[in-house]
Amino acid sequence: MEIAENTALVVVDVQQGFEQRDFWGERNNPEADTQIETLIDAWQATGRPVVFVRHDSSKPDSPLRPGQPGNDFKPYVEQRRGKGSGAELLLTKTVNSAFYGTPDLDAWLKEAGISQFVVAGIQTNMCAETTARMGGNLGYEVLFALDATYTFDLEGPFGWRRSADELARATAVSLHGGGFARVVTTQELVAAATTA
Rank of each mutant, 00 (worst) to 15 (best):
E88G: 04
G113I: 03
R54A: 15
T130I: 13
R80M: 08
G178N: 06
A112D: 05
A128Y: 02
L90K: 09
T130L: 07
G179Y: 02
A164W: 02
D106T: 04
L90S: 14
A112L: 15
G101Q: 04
L89G: 03
N125I: 00
D153Y: 04
S115N: 14
G70V: 09
Q123I: 14
P75A: 08
T185F: 11
R162H: 14
N125H: 14
G135D: 01
A170L: 13
F52D: 04
T94N: 09
K83A: 13
E155Y: 05
L146E: 10
R54T: 12
A148K: 07
I122T: 09
K83L: 13
G156D: 06
N96C: 12
T131Y: 05
V183R: 03
F180I: 02
D106A: 13
W160Q: 15
A87I: 01
A181K: 02
A148L: 10
L105Q: 07
G136F: 00
Y100M: 12
P157H: 12
S115C: 06
T149V: 08
G113E: 07
S163A: 03
L89H: 02
Q123Y: 10
V77R: 09
N125K: 05
L154G: 10
R81D: 04
Q187F: 11
N96L: 12
A120L: 08
L154H: 15
M126T: 11
F73G: 05
H55P: 00
A112Q: 15
K59S: 14
F73V: 03
R169D: 12
E88N: 05
E166N: 10
N96A: 14
T131P: 05
T94L: 00
G159R: 09
L90G: 04
V184R: 12
A128F: 01
C127G: 09
D106R: 10
V53P: 01
L90Y: 10
E155L: 07
G101C: 09
P66W: 07
E111K: 15
D106N: 15
T149W: 00
A120R: 04
T151P: 03
V95G: 01
R54G: 11
F152N: 08
K110E: 10
L64A: 04
A120H: 03
V183W: 03
Q123N: 13
V142R: 00
S97L: 08
Q123H: 12
C127S: 13
E129K: 14
V53K: 00
L109P: 03
P103F: 07
E166L: 06
P63M: 00
F99S: 00
M134Y: 12
P69C: 03
E111R: 15
V77P: 08
T149F: 02
A107T: 13
S115Y: 03
R182H: 14
D61I: 02
A170V: 10
P69W: 02
K74F: 08
T92K: 06
V184C: 13
A164D: 06
S62Q: 03
R54M: 12
F158V: 11
D72N: 14
L64W: 05
P60Q: 05
M134I: 14
P63S: 01
R80A: 08
N71Q: 10
L90V: 09
I122E: 10
R162M: 13
V53D: 00
P157S: 13
A170E: 12
L154Y: 15
A107I: 05
Y150G: 01
R81I: 15
T102G: 00
V173R: 05
S58L: 14
P60A: 11
L138V: 01
H176I: 00
